[in-house]
């Protein structure tokens, strides 16, 4: 696919993906991930970028047993909605834990990991995942 092997597309997101750069709405105080120019909650065009806290807890999660393209051979793996300390929510992978040991409310901390390779000879896309704090 043309779109899954686009280098500029990954490159322009690097700060948001590497450093959890979210956006805080100066009007309604919502904090969203990733950062963007318009608040999805109140529509204000008044967002400021902020680095989100690295700790949070699991809101909900699932185990991917049939991987999508780009994640073949990695299954089973965990995906989760994480609520960070300031209330922002991110969708991410949970790593370094067996699926049966994951619980809602579990405390987690951000780690820097590989997500996918665009091709065996393509670029490697890195980003933030979460692991159990304890």
């Amino acid at each position: 696919m043309v779109w899954s092997e686009s280098v500029p597309r990954f490159w322009r997101e690097r700060a948001r993906k590497y450093r959890l750069v979210g956006g805080r709405c100066r009007k309604c105080n919502s904090i969203v991930y990733p950062h963007r120019s318009v608040c999805p909650h109140c529509g204000a065009e008044n967002m400021e970028p902020i680095e989100l806290p690295r700790r949070g807890k699991v809101v909900t999660f699932s185990v991917v047993r049939h991987p999508p393209r780009g994640f073949e051979g990695k299954e089973p793996f965990l995906v989760a909605v994480i609520e960070l300390e300031n209330g922002a929510r991110v969708l991410s992978q949970l790593v370094d834990v067996h699926p049966e040991d994951v619980k809602e409310g579990m405390e987690v901390v951000a780690v820097f990991r590989r997500y996918r390779e665009q091709a065996p000879n393509g670029i490697i896309e890195y980003g933030i995942k979460f692991r159990p704090l304890k």
């Binding site: 049939h66 999508p68 393209r69 995906v79 969708l91 991410s92 997500y115 995942k129």
Partner: peptide, 30 residues
């Protein structure tokens, strides 16, 4: 699976390996 995922955010949802079933599964578990 990949085609169904074009309905989701390629940059921040598909990127993390979440499938369409997994997203619904998270709603379900919640």
């Amino acid at each position: 699976t990949a085609a169904l995922l074009t309905a989701e955010d390629q940059e921040y949802t598909v990127f993390v390996g979440a499938t369409f079933v997994a997203l619904n599964a998270m709603v379900y578990r919640y």
